[in-house]
Simulated assay, not measured.
Amino acid sequence: MVGIAVLGAGRIGKIHAASVAANPKAKLIAVADPFPEAVEPLAQSLGTEAMNDCMEAIARPDVDAVVIGTPTDTHVGFLLKAVELGKAVLCEKPIDLDMAKSESAAAEIERVGGRVMLAFNRRFDSTFAEMRRAIDAGRIGDVRQVIISSRDPGLAPPSYIKTSGGIFRDMTIHDLDMARWMLGEEPVLVSAVGARLIDPTLKQYEDYDTAMVLLQTESGRQAHINNCREAVYGYDQRVEVLGATGMLTHDNLRPTTMRVTTAETTDAREPLLNFFLERYAQAYRSEMDAFIDALADDKPMPTTVRDGVLALRLAECAVESVRTGRAVAV
């Protein structure tokens, strides 16, 4: 049994804690969060201990691994402490909003051989994972283009936007990791545009609500990512991979596949799943299972701290590209 402490009792902490509690190879030792009103009900619902000091939770001798779901500016401190104590870590993205700080933390983790997995949960979506297996099996030949549409159903509140690091570091970073994964080659050139078509006040945060990114690898493979913070029809998540001998597509998910045809409408369907908590529920469970399996069976981490660094570097290039109006070499 792998003893795990979950740090953070917010919405992502709740997901991770429930996934740990449901895994037969793990024991949820504690959930830690400085806010008692958040952590105590969560711990009670899962039959585990509530703690208010995350560092104390990391240091417990019965904790083999920690899951970091706390605010981004706390990630590096908890990461390095856990690695120093020989604990494995599953950490939410990004490592940090600062590139140099992220690079330094990753270098230290790699230097000491720390076991750290970055939480890019979309890789564990069953259909996205099947697409990667199909590419590896040569079912569509050499990859030529990857097209990713990722749009939220509505703007996050200003309190979140203010500390998010901006659309490229917060939202697009998932798609940048997905593009790297599907392309099978590292991008070397990034072009991006950003606009404030929904909320002009985002200018005060140097942020955007609508963006497009174009990536190119050394061999010429391309990825196109389009993001928007508001899609009135729901949480829009689609991927298309074009290869030399075929194409793979992944469309949006709905509560059911039922279609209704009447005198007034043809092929009417239910709205898209509302947001990432519903859309990626299976992916979050599978991500945690993969982390625990790697620990229990002494296997390599399915994603690494280096994946986090590379995705953040692409996000930084996108920010620079918008600022300068030019393509940026990675």
Rank of each mutant, 00 (worst) to 15 (best):
M1N: 01
V2K: 04
G3T: 02
A5K: 06
A5D: 04
R11A: 13
K14L: 00
I15T: 04
A17K: 05
A18F: 07
A18W: 04
S19W: 00
V20G: 01
A22W: 06
A22I: 07
N23E: 01
N23D: 04
K25G: 01
K25R: 13
A26E: 03
A26M: 03
F35S: 10
E37L: 06
A38T: 02
A38I: 00
E40S: 11
L42G: 03
A43C: 15
A50V: 11
M51C: 03
M55P: 05
E56D: 13
P61V: 07
D62I: 12
V66S: 10
V67Q: 10
V67R: 11
G69N: 07
K87A: 07
P94G: 11
I95A: 06
D96R: 09
L97I: 02
M99C: 06
A100C: 10
S104L: 13
S104W: 13
A105F: 08
A107F: 01
E108D: 14
V116E: 07
M117H: 08
M117Y: 10
R122H: 11
F124S: 06
S126W: 14
A129S: 14
R133Y: 12
G138Y: 06
R139G: 01
G141C: 12
G141W: 10
D142G: 08
D142M: 03
V146F: 02
V146S: 03
I147C: 07
S149F: 00
R151T: 02
R151S: 02
G154D: 02
L155V: 10
L155F: 09
A156D: 08
P157M: 02
S159Y: 09
Y160Q: 14
K162L: 15
K162N: 15
G165K: 11
G166Y: 03
T172Y: 10
H174W: 05
L176C: 00
L189A: 06
L189M: 06
S191E: 03
R196S: 03
D199Q: 14
D199W: 12
D199P: 09
T201E: 11
L202V: 12
L202C: 12
Y208H: 08
V213P: 02
Q216P: 01
H224Q: 05
N226Y: 07
R229P: 01
R229W: 05
V232W: 12
G234T: 01
Y235N: 05
R238M: 05
G243S: 14
G246N: 11
M247C: 14
M247V: 14
L248C: 14
D251M: 06
L253Q: 14
P255T: 08
T256Q: 15
M258L: 15
A263W: 04
A263C: 05
E264R: 07
T266V: 09
D267V: 10
A268Y: 15
P271R: 09
L273D: 03
F276C: 11
L277I: 11
L277H: 12
E278A: 12
R279V: 08
R279G: 02
R279S: 06
Y284Q: 04
R285S: 12
S286A: 11
E287Y: 14
D289M: 05
I292W: 05
A294D: 07
A296R: 12
D298W: 13
D298S: 15
D298V: 15
M301V: 12
T303C: 10
L312H: 00
A315W: 06
A318K: 00
V319R: 00
E320T: 02
S321D: 01
T324Y: 00
R326K: 11
A327K: 03
V328T: 02
